[in-house]
Design a protein around this nucleic acid. Sequence first.
RNA 1: GGAGAGGUGGCAGAGUGGUCGAAUGUACCUGACUCGAAAUCAGGCGUACUGCAAGGUACCGUGGGUUCGAAUCCCACCCUCUCCGCCA
Length: 427
Amino acid sequence: MLDIQQLRSNLDAVAEALAKRGKPIDFTEFKALEAERKTLQSRTQELQAQRNSLSKQIGMLKGQGKDASEVMAQVGALSDELKTSEGRLGELLEQFNAILAALPNIPDESVPVGSDETGNVEIKRWGTPRTFDFPVKDHTDVGEQLGQLDFTTAAKIAGSRFSLLKGGLARLHRALAQFMLDTHTADHGYTELYAPYLVNAASLYGTGQLPKFEEDLFKVLRGDQGPLYLIPTAEVPVTNIVRDEILAAEVLPLKFVCHTPCFRSEAGSGGRDVRGMIRQHQFDKVELVQVVHPEQSAEAHEALTRHAEVILEKLELPYRRMALCSGDMGFSAAKTYDLEVWLPAQNTYREISSCSNFGAFQARRMQARFRNDKSKPELCHTLNGSGLAVGRTLVAILENYQQADGSVTIPAVLRPYMGGLDVLSAS
RNA sequence: GGAGAGGUGGCAGAGUGGUCGAAUGUACCUGACUCGAAAUCAGGCGUACUGCAAGGUACCGUGGGUUCGAAUCCCACCCUCUCCGCCA
């Protein structure tokens, strides 16, 4: 959520900054509402003040046993205007909230301007893609030929866009998550969390998935109670820890790491990445979340992105870091780096991590604050990033570590997690 | 799932229709006393919007309603706790 003060005082600048995202936003409704709001609000408050003071008089008169009917008549004269005035003001404020809730974040000044992913800028490259002296298979073929990856049975059990892992591959999946968690807790200073996989609407509103992106979520209806949603990322439960909190400045920065399954309906992705594990309804992810002092968020963003990169480097997977352009960033982000891992079968880099600085955008929605130097509540900044997407990391390993005989070498750092096993072979 | 109790300021806790945005305690901040600290004493101490300011407005789980007036009464929802049942 953007600062409504900023919209009121500097609408043109906001509109210009938001236009960088590609779709110019029409603010004529906002302007009309704002013009009406100002006078209506002060008039309403004036009427309320009159009512309150007259009502106090009634109380005093009655307390003294005197007749209050004259004063009561005065209040009665106010009540009609007050009622319509309050009602209209309520409507206006609701419309403001709806407009505000649907506005995306303003891109940071350092974000390259562009309309889509072709405008993204490569920041760095790490590692050299391996050369193969045999025909490279994609991860689906590698996994299926190992007899450890089974989409047919997954489809029977659940449907398309699910996978079933077996034996060594299932263990490798578990090993990856363990390895990532251990690295982030032991080397990068994160506190491990275990969090709910189902969350309420308020939490999704806080991180920006609602109200605009409900169709991307799996929704669980519960009779007459409010619905719950399957989390699309651990970002939601973890960031919402600080919702409606005023933190002591000393507790910042908060650094959390959380491994969860993620559930996405992938509505509208039809046809894309239908083969394999790239785009699933359910996938595991190790998520990094930070809540920081506003002055520290840019620095924290760089550090957090490095924390994700370290995982790829330890796994010896070639990757590149992209700065997303204004038109390709997510709704809530002020700035995003994507990490893309090399997939030899696709002969390209594919997204495996997305690390974003949200500035105060999420914090304002969540009312997540801390007490600043002057002991005044001030909005925190929030950040998160995948460290990493487990399923896609598994894909990268299957493809990059495949051997001519169909086996898959296990990256050295994972072997302690695999009971010393150093290769996956057909079972 | 059944029965009951309850949600008030950082925490504890009073307040059941009228100077209540809210007693009191505690924590915290400032000052006095002290060589310093403790203790004691005095003052301050919720959030947001609005106004140059004085001030005004809203908020006592959330949303409605009754009333001239609601923390207080009514309705719905959310959440917590206790007991019983069931259960990984």
